[in-house]
């Protein structure tokens, strides 16, 4: 974790956070700058094992729908719609990986097929019970990012 005090403070300011709850950056307040999100979304370090589960789980990340990854070879059916993620941490920094998971369309292009996992910039007619909700929670994003940073070759 490269969490700096100013970054946490900034996160607090962005969300207007004052209470005793976790310091979560709201989806609309995440700043993607230079294809990166420097600050943790929660201030709590991500857990790579949890991240791997979220990554594979069909109702959470379901990242395997599109990406193959050797580290999860035991899971069935890896898609090939998108690049394999082996060695992805050699290609992107932690802050860049966070930005990709938060909103790939802001990092690659608006044409990207990859959903924004912590974004409210979504399609039309969102299912009623999901309106205003992100695909992953802030902590799940941190967990997935922690898992991605283990993918080195």
């Amino acid at each position: 974790m490269r969490l700096t005090v100013p970054a946490i403070a900034a996160a607090f300011v962005m969300t207007g956070w004052v209470g005793a709850h976790a310091a979560e950056v709201a989806p609309g307040d995440v700043q993607i700058e230079d294809m990166a999100v420097e600050a943790s979304l929660t201030g709590t370090p991500g857990n790579p094992e949890e991240g791997a589960k979220t990554f594979a789980n069909r109702s959470l990340g379901n990242c395997l729908a599109c990406h193959a990854v050797e580290a999860l070879a035991k899971e069935q059916f890896h898609g090939n719609v998108a690049p394999p993620l082996d060695g992805v941490a050699d290609r992107w920094s932690q802050a860049e990986l966070r930005a990709i998971v938060v909103d790939a369309k802001k990092v690659f292009s608006d044409e990207s097929m990859m959903p924004g996992f912590y974004s409210l910039d979504v399609g039309k007619n969102v299912r009623e019970d999901l309106v205003g909700k992100t695909i992953l929670t802030a902590q799940q994003v941190e967990d997935v990012v922690a898992f991605l940073t283990t993918l080195k070759e």
């Binding site: 090939n80 097929m113 959903p115 910039d121 979504v122 399609g123 969102v126 299912r127």
Partner: peptide, 19 residues
């Protein structure tokens, strides 16, 4: 459409032939 923000074309045009 939807939270996943995909159109018919996303899957059947852009990703046609992939798994």
């Amino acid at each position: 459409t939807g939270q996943l923000n995909m159109a018919c074309a996303t899957c059947h045009e852009g990703a046609m032939g992939h798994y």
